[in-house]
Structure formats: C-alpha cells, structure tokens
C-alpha cells in the first residue's frame, strides 16, 4: 500500500531468494538471542524456584527449622538427589533440636485453567495438614487466586484432619471440598464462593497427594526420625 503511495510506482517484486534469506537470517538471530537469554536467566530462575520451595516448606510446617528431601519409590525410602526419579518427593521437617515434626510434599490437581501446584505441610503430633502454599497456578486473577489470599480459606489448613486409617492403607477420612459455609467435619475444606473450582482443585490435590503419601510414610517414620538434618 505504502509503496505505490510513496513512490507512485508499482511494487517491485524481490527475488524469492532475498525473501528466504531475510526470513532465515531474522529467525536464526532471534533463536540465538532467545537461547542466550535462556542460558543467562535459567540459573537465576532455578534458584528462584528453589528458594520459593524452601520458603514454602518452612512455612507449611510451623516451627520447623530445617528439612531434608526424601524420595519414596517402590516402597523404598532414600534421600532425594539432584536428579529426581519417578518416586514421590517429600521434605521431612525437623525442629531446632533435630526432632522430626512433620513433612511437606508437593501435590497438584486440575484447576480451572491449568493444574494447580501446591506444597502442603503435615505434622505428626496432630496428624493433620498444617498449611498449604500454592506454588504455581494459572487461575483467573482476582477469582481463582483468592485461594492464596482469602483468610477464611487459608484457615482451612490450620489443622485439617488427615489421620491415617487403622489398617494403614489410606486416610481414615478422604479430604473433601464442601460448599462455602457448610464445613462440618475437620477433614472438610470450606470452598470460597466464586472460586469453587480452584478450591476443589486444592482439596483434590490434598486428597490424592496426602492420601497416597501419608500411609506409606508411616512405615518409614522411624527411619525419618533417625535421620538428622
């Protein structure tokens, strides 16, 4: 449009070669720029993620002073290495005297937009979930992300009942999310009205995550207690 307007002459057709060369060159240079920025920022981003997990673990297990990552795979427990296998990763939390007080583990479930990734904390003395921190989500800002800020919702996880059944196979009561204002049992999560789907996702993540992990961890409790951070 502008060519005919500015010069008054019809558009001259460049050779295909020139078009191919210009596109290739621009793409290659862009690719290189992206790779360079990626290489430069990746260690910083990884460190950010590590710090976020560390801070999250220490918040969800109140009174914890340090933690040790473990991996549980095929009924064997081993300290987690930098290259995690297929097992379930969790962090055993110890207090200042080095006593085992709880654990934290990642879990996730499908939310409204994408999976909601959380880290939850569990204390052995009350056999309850003591905190949930959302690590990554893509929920609607102002709606779904209220699960992070809403005080009443967060209070669900001050002491959410997660006792393991007597036979050690599952949780005694499955963790369920109930409609806002209808929570009547200590293992129920009171949803936020207006963010029901995200609330349910967190409840489900806990149910699946803790439901699988906690019964297994109980078998290794002595081993965890012997381990000093």
């Amino acid at each position: 449009m502008t060519d005919t307007q500015t010069t008054g002459q019809p558009l001259e057709k460049p050779s295909s070669l020139r078009m191919i060369v210009s596109l290739t060159l621009v793409s290659v240079l862009s690719g290189m720029a992206v790779v360079m920025v990626y290489l430069y920022t990746r260690p910083i981003i990884d460190e950010n993620k590590r710090l976020a997990i560390e801070a999250a673990v220490l918040t969800v297990i109140p009174d914890s002073a340090g933690f040790v990552p473990f991996e549980l795979e095929d009924n064997t427990l081993r300290p987690a290495t930098d290259s995690p296998g297929k097992g379930q990763l969790f962090y055993a939390g110890y207090d200042q005297q080095g006593q085992l007080i709880g654990l934290a583990a990642p879990a996730n479930a499908q939310g409204y937009a994408d999976k909601v990734y959380i880290i939850y904390g569990y204390r052995f003395d009350c056999e309850c979930i003591t905190g949930v921190k959302v690590i990554k989500h893509a929920e609607t800002p102002g709606l779904g992300d209220k699960v992070i800020t809403d005080k009443d919702f967060v209070a669900n996880f001050d002491a959410l009942d997660a006792r393991v059944a007597a036979d050690g196979s599952a949780l005694r009561n499955r963790i369920v999310t109930v409609k806002h204002g209808t929570k009547s049992n200590p293992w129920e999560v009171d949803a936020i009205s207006g963010a029901t789907i995200t609330s349910r996702a967190i409840g489900r993540a806990l149910d699946i995550g803790a439901g699988l992990l906690l019964p297994q961890v109980m078998k290794f409790r002595q081993q965890l207690e012997d381990h000093q951070p």
Binding site: D3, K13, P14, M19, S22, L23, V26, S27, S30, V34
Partner: peptide, 17 residues
C-alpha cells in the same frame, strides 16, 4: 533491508523474540 512481502513475518519474529 526487509522485502515488503515478508515484513509482517519478520516483525512478528522480532516481537516474539
């Protein structure tokens, strides 16, 4: 330096980068 026919593609690549 950019041929007019490929300019939009080039702009998009630059912006995406």
């Amino acid at each position: 330096w950019i041929p007019k026919q490929t300019r939009i593609a080039v702009f998009i690549i630059i912006i995406a980068t």
